[in-house]
Amino acid sequence: MQGHVWKFGTDVDTDAIIPARYLNTSDPVELAKHVMEDADPTFAQKVTEGDIIVARKNFGCGSSREHAPIAIKTAGVACVIAHSFARIFYRNAINIGLPILESPEAAEKIEEGHEVKVDLTTGTIFNLTTGETYQAAPFPPFMQTIMDKGGLIGYVQWRLQTESSTGPY
């Protein structure tokens, strides 16, 4: 995947990603209209299909609301790269099939407006604007399988059908 970068800072919390005042619905399209609103009120208008979010440490801290990765994914964001992710956001992203990568170097060096290409299977991030390459740890096989099945629900369906167990579940 390849896309235009939007850059955010440290400790972007889930209230900034999708404020609680919009949580009286769980409709992804409604949620996406307010994505990142309290971090950047114009973001939902600017973001286009295939864009990439890059942030610094502890992205997605705070509440367990899956509405946060859902809003990001539904808004068309192809991938989130950060120095680190808060743990519930991390699991939610995997469970709903939103690709995420942890790379302190990429989080440091990629700027807003850069064009970035990502190879999810190897975890390699190419900065097409500066020519640099950064390496993130690829997903462990189990998490990769969840992603390949389109998220945890697809994975559980597959597990129930095949009764195979290649890792957790």
């Binding site: 367990s64 899956e66 939610n92 469970n95 189990f142 945890l152 559980v156 579940y169």
Partner: peptide
């Protein structure tokens, strides 16, 4: 704390990944 999808899977299977 987990997300809604974790909750769904756990309601079905009584299990979660950690």
């Amino acid at each position: 704390g987990v997300g809604s999808t974790d909750m769904a899977a756990a309601m079905a299977l009584g299990e979660a990944w950690f």
